[in-house]
């Protein structure tokens, strides 16, 4: 469990060091679309990519696109941190990148559709503002793909 009170002091101190102030005025976007009409993309900071694609560096604000028509079971991970469990992701890609769950939500009309491309970052070793440029690039790509909303997963 990631309840700080349950963790050893060294772990608690490390995680609390990541408590940073907001990056600026708090953004809040709204839409009149119903959930069942929204187009979603998944974004993870787990450092995922397909085997043979460029791996992430130790501290790396770049991102990797994940095409919807690729087999997500073939995703691997090159996250630099040694401080999280990887055995669960070995068992099930959806634990980190819930693409099958979102396909099911499309099938039962809970959400409208899924983007053609989803995206993976590697969240480690950098201050948040370093991601501004690549986030802007992804925002542009998402808009080209007519994405309304993003579901984000850390690791």
């Amino acid at each position: 469990m990631v309840r700080l009170a349950d963790l050893p002091e060294y772990e608690r101190e490390h995680l609390l060091a990541k408590n940073l102030p907001p990056l600026g005025p708090l953004p809040w976007h709204t839409t009149t679309k119903a959930l069942s009409a929204m187009r979603f993309a998944l974004i993870t900071t787990a450092g995922l990519h397909f085997r043979g694609e460029p791996t992430f560096n130790f501290a790396d604000p770049t991102f990797r696109p994940i095409a919807i028509d690729r087999n997500a079971d073939e995703l691997i991970m090159s996250h630099s941190s040694a401080n999280f469990d990887r055995s669960g992701f070995s068992e099930d890609v959806n634990l980190v990148f819930p693409i099958d769950r979102f396909q099911e939500l499309v099938a039962d009309n809970t959400i409208g559709s899924l983007a053609e491309f989803h995206y993976s970052f590697m969240g480690a070793g950098l201050m948040p503002e370093v991601y501004a440029r690549s986030a802007a690039q992804v925002a542009g790509l998402l808009k080209q793909d007519l994405v309304d909303a993003v579901f984000l997963t850390p690791v």
């Binding site: 907001p22 990056l23 600026g24 953004p27 809040w28 976007h29 709204t30 839409t31 929204m38 974004i43 948040p128 991601y131 501004a132 986030a135 802007a136 992804v138 925002a139 998402l142 808009k143 994405v147 309304d148 909303a149 993003v150 984000l152």
Partner: peptide
């Protein structure tokens, strides 16, 4: 933060 600021719900 950056995606919401760009007009995408997160």
């Amino acid at each position: 933060y950056y995606l919401e600021a760009a007009g995408i719900l997160t």
